[in-house]
């Protein structure tokens, strides 16, 4: 499996080098929107030193962690997911289904998106600086990294579930953007939302927990919510796998 993944990564790199200008522009836009978030955060905190106990550095930690999760997902899976919708709708899955590989993981890891690696490394570097100022204990730092990994798994599972819906739903392209919108909306301190919204997105669809939990570990406020987010992510991954298998039964080849 690792050998196949290495080949897929090499192919992705070759494609990236073919579209160099696109790569540079995509990376630049990632930086641009991150900069806008920083400026907007700066505007908020120019009127008050803290919001629900979060100071500007904590807020930076939160949005940078949220961006880190988002860019890591984009680097590892977004190109595969974009390709998968077309493959399902065009009925072109035959070749991968015939291969002696797990088709779920083959399509999920079909391509890596190298332009996102630039923004991933940049936000990773900035997060490193922020964490060095927040001084988390080694245990909290370790749990921060675990929480980020759980976050990447959560975003992957949500997107996988949406993309696989293409087996049943055609022409609702905006549906695929929902997980991204949900994660964008979750890149804020949970406490700014009314209690009902907080409970819904901390416990039922824990997108707020996914962004807030690692940020809390970052500033030495451990939380048991990490266990819950890990459990929900596991369940979502299982659901996406079952959905994939059901979808394959619905699949009609166009070859």
């Amino acid at each position: 499996m690792l050998k196949i993944y290495r080949v897929l990564v090499t192919q992705s790199l070759a494609e990236t080098m073919t579209y160099r200008v696109t790569t540079v522009l995509t990376a630049l836009f990632g930086v641009l929107f991150y900069a806008i978030e920083l400026i907007t955060g700066g505007v908020y905190f120019s009127f008050t030193p803290t919001i629900y106990g979060w100071n500007f550095l904590d807020y930076l930690n939160l949005i940078t962690t949220a961006n880190l999760i988002s860019y890591a997902y984009q680097f590892l899976f977004v190109a595969g997911h974009e390709d998968l919708v077309d493959q399902i709708l065009d009925g072109n899955l035959d070749y991968s289904l015939l291969r002696p590989v797990n088709s779920y993981w083959f399509h999920a890891c079909y391509r890596v998106d190298f332009p996102s690696l630039v923004t991933l490394l940049l936000t990773g570097g900035i997060e490193g600086v922020i964490l060095s100022k927040l001084h988390p204990t080694p245990l909290n730092l370790f749990l921060y990294l675990v929480a980020v990994l759980v976050g990447i798994g959560f975003v992957f599972a949500l997107n996988q579930i949406m993309v696989t819906l293409a087996f049943w739903v055609d022409g609702l392209s905006a549906l695929n953007g929902l997980p991204e919108d949900l994660m964008d909306a979750s890149a804020r301190p949970a406490k700014i939302y009314p209690r009902v919204i907080q409970q819904l997105f901390l416990w039922v669809i824990p997108s707020l927990a996914i962004t807030n939990v690692p940020a809390q570990f970052g500033h030495n406020q451990p939380t048991w919510l990490l266990l819950w987010t890990a459990l929900v992510t596991g369940v979502l991954l299982v659901i996406s796998y079952i959905e994939w298998q059901r979808g394959l039964l619905k699949y009609v080849s166009a070859n």
Partner: peptide
Amino acid sequence: AVNVMVTIFMWLAV
């Protein structure tokens, strides 16, 4: 609408 709500809640907190 979701984006607007997020910004509104943030500003109300400010």
